[in-house]
Simulated assay, not measured.
Amino acid sequence: MLMKDVEWLGDSLENLKTFPRQVCGPVGYALQAVQNGEKPLNAKPLKGKGVSGVFEIVQRHDTNTFRAVYIAKLKNAVYVLHCFQKKSKTGKQTQPKDMDLIKQRLKEARERDKEIEGEKQ
Rank of each mutant, 00 (worst) to 15 (best):
L2T: 12
M3D: 01
D5A: 13
E7V: 14
W8L: 06
W8V: 11
W8N: 09
L9P: 00
L9E: 00
N15M: 13
N15D: 06
K17S: 06
F19R: 03
G25Y: 03
V27D: 04
A33C: 09
A33K: 07
A33I: 03
A33S: 11
Q35G: 00
E38F: 02
L41H: 07
N42C: 14
A43I: 11
K44A: 14
K44Q: 11
P45V: 00
K47L: 11
V58H: 06
H61N: 04
T63P: 00
T63I: 13
F66E: 01
A72M: 11
A72G: 15
L74V: 06
V78K: 10
V78F: 08
C83S: 02
F84Q: 04
F84V: 13
K87R: 06
S88V: 09
S88E: 14
K89P: 12
T90W: 04
G91I: 00
Q93G: 07
P96Y: 06
K97F: 00
L101G: 08
K103L: 10
Q104S: 13
R105V: 09
R110S: 12
E111K: 08
R112L: 10
R112P: 00
R112V: 02
D113T: 08
E115M: 09
E115H: 13
E117W: 15
G118D: 09
G118W: 05
Q121W: 02
Q121L: 05
